[in-house]
Write a protein that binds this DNA or RNA. Structure first.
Lengths: 198, 198
DNA sequence: TTGACAAGTGACCTTTCGTTCACTATAATA
DNA sequence: TATTATAGTGAACGAAAGGTCACTTGTCAA
């Protein structure tokens, strides 16, 4: 038996919550998708809400480990073209990785209901990105790659449009390729406007 | 009796759907909020889904009437400062008008489930805004107020960050004032970067 | 070998859901 | 005045929801 059923339940919950939301998901279906019967789930979690809370715990931890810690910060590009490349790698990953997509969707669907989801959503969609790029742009300004300007403002101006495109991919996956092209076009526009020749 | 109960049901549905989503809303509560008993609702709509469809019809019509038609386009500002003013009026309205807020929230919550909601969400959050500002920026470039550039790209670069702030207001209403300040700061940053002196 | 425990089953419970229906009150119409 | 359509009531229904429990099964330690 055993065999990480708890983790499999959480994975299935992420999948179902991200498609139908918390209220639109029922334990029967969730169990069935794992080849379990409903009551089996209650051997691992005491309630539907407990599954939700554990899933949020996991998402918060994952976010802190991968985006919140100083070690995992992306290296600062040493050229404007490097900024485009790095950006497109991040975009490509984030719109193709199923787990990341589902995490965004869940946060989108539960942001008005759950205080922790709301908080994580703002980090995920807004402040987390601007924080990362504020550091990057500060460095790039110091190196003379970008015009001297308010790095926070530039980070916001850079990440928000890309974030909007990512959300569009979540909503309309068939437009993913087009969105990626748009993201690259925007990135090149950005370095043309803010980049510094030397 | 009579007295526009159908419209009151739709208004209540908008309110509840925007807070708890379609699946998280039940007819009992909805009816009670109108001083009705559950079965009374079924004199006006044949099912919960019929309420949802009528609400979406209403939202689509409302959007087409107010943002989609050529007549309701905002007048092109005749100065850079005028662009900031016009933008801030739009922002101020959109983050304070309850009906508009609830419409955005509903589209956010149902975008992955309902094809029409998905389509309207992309219009509301992305393409609708860039279309409007593409026209405005084209005019402003012609008048020499903005540097010649790709007006679609500028419209996207301008509206996406503001849209992100609006979404943050929906999520965390207590940060509305701060978001408005950020929006104005961003708008001023934008005219400083792209504006043309003459 | 046995005992204990974790993991999974299937029947069952209660509550809540969306929906229906027979009925009543009201207001307009013929 | 009699009729009819409209709006609303309250009881009831079947389905589905979340959750419980006695029971079985497989695994491992003593």
């Amino acid at each position: 038996m055993a065999n990480g059923t708890k983790e499999r339940i959480l994975a299935a919950a992420l999948e179902m919550f991200s498609q139908n939301g918390y209220a639109g998901t029922n334990i029967r279906e969730l169990s069935a998708s794992l080849g379990l019967v409903k009551s089996g789930v209650y051997k691992h979690f005491e309630s539907k809400e407990a599954i939700w809370n554990a899933l949020l715990d996991q998402m918060i931890t994952y976010y802190a480990d991968h985006f919140g810690s100083a070690e995992h910060l992306p290296t600062v590009p040493d050229s404007l073209e490097g900024l485009v490349t790095m950006t497109m790698q991040m975009v490509y990953f984030t719109v193709h990785d199923e787990k990341v997509i589902m995490t965004r969707k869940v946060l989108t669907l539960e942001q008005f209901r759950d205080a922790r989801a709301r908080e994580l959503a703002t980090k995920h969609f807004l402040t987390g990105l601007t924080d990362i790029f504020t550091r990057i742009f500060t460095s790039m300004m110091d190196k003379g790659l970008l015009r001297k300007d308010n790095p926070e403002m530039l980070a916001f101006a850079y990440t928000a449009p890309i974030s909007a495109l990512i959300h569009m991919c979540d909503r309309e996956p068939e437009k993913t390729e087009e969105a990626i092209r748009q993201a690259e076009a925007f990135s090149r526009h950005f370095i043309r406007v803010y980049g510094q020749e030397d």
